[in-house]
């Protein structure tokens, strides 16, 4: 049932992408996302797609895991497509009633869909190859300069890792509670909206109580270990750039350069 839902969908395997420093992957993903929004021409898109395919192949993660992320935004894609198709002004090529599809609209739709696909697959690739903990580590390290202006970076990162850690636990708990109530004849699936919302009460009350109890236990355990936040705290596995990370940065810069060259049309034969 609920066991099959995955959030923080890390895929365990050993590849060069898994071993990269999470900071590289985070920066890389952000730059990649920026790069697909830079130009609206076929060649840069081809390059972006090619780069992504190469990365996927390097990651050793089966392709169907990438597709999974797309399912969740299918509705959003359909909406965007519909709006772009019908509401972009320009040369009308086909129409029903007052709604017309313009040439520009088709183009805009194709680009928008392509961008969304690349964006989702690109960021899935990062979450598939990086554990949530590595990711928050990277974020903490990258945002560290902000402590100068008194932003509680460590605390925010800590909150994020705790929240992420609790997702699978609470999902499992939800599953158990659902089963316990179903064994008492609960029905979560039929009836109208109001009835279904009411049916949620026997699920939510034990879940909230469990969440508070766990939070309490965790706070107690942290107190018992004298946890007191970021100041002067060291890590068991500090993040350090290695040779392969430098290599990855070089590849990234080459990709961006190629993107700009193609996008600006600097090579006339293409």
């Amino acid at each position: 049932m609920i066991r099959e839902i995955t959030i923080g969908q890390y895929y365990q395997t050993d590849s060069i992408l898994h071993r990269l420093d999470p900071r590289v992957k985070l920066i890389g993903t952000i730059l990649y996302i920026v790069s697909i929004f830079l130009y609206r021409k076929p060649l840069p898109f081809a390059l972006a797609a090619l780069f992504l395919v190469l990365c996927i192949m390097l990651s050793k993660v089966p392709f169907r895991y990438m597709i999974r992320g797309l399912k969740t935004i299918l509705f959003l894609m359909l909406f965007t497509a519909a709006f772009n198709l019908f509401l972009t002004p320009g040369e009308i090529v086909w129409s029903i009633g007052k709604l017309g599809i313009s040439k520009e609209g088709i183009l805009a739709t194709v680009y928008m869909i392509l961008r969304m696909i690349l964006l989702i697959i690109g960021s899935s690739l990062m979450t598939l190859t990086t554990t949530p903990n590595q990711l928050t580590d990277a974020m903490e390290k990258l945002l560290w300069p902000l402590t100068k202006i008194h932003l509680p970076v460590h605390e925010v990162a800590m909150m994020m890792s705790i929240a992420l850690r609790f997702i699978p636990i609470l999902l499992e708990e939800t599953d158990k509670i659902m089963k316990a109530q179903m064994a008492r004849g609960a029905d979560f699936e039929s009836g109208n909206l109001l009835k279904r919302m009411k049916a949620m009460v026997p699920l939510l009350v034990p879940l909230f109580i469990a969440a508070f109890r766990r939070a309490n236990d965790l706070a107690m355990a942290m107190e018992a270990r004298c946890y007191q936040g970021g100041e002067g705290r060291t890590k068991m596995k500090p993040l350090r750039y290695k040779g392969r990370d430098t290599g990855a940065f070089v590849v990234l810069i080459c990709y961006l350069a190629a993107m700009i060259v193609l996008g600006k049309g600097l090579i006339p034969i293409l």
Partner: peptide, 29 residues
């Protein structure tokens, strides 16, 4: 649904099923 009234299953942790404000109402569920 009929089966679940014939075969009753009590799970390990009572915390997973108790939710009402008082014992009697909970057993009525």
């Amino acid at each position: 649904k009929k089966l679940r009234s014939k075969v009753g299953l009590v799970f390990q942790y009572p915390e997973h099923q108790l939710f009402e404000a008082d014992v009697f109402t909970d057993v009525c569920y």
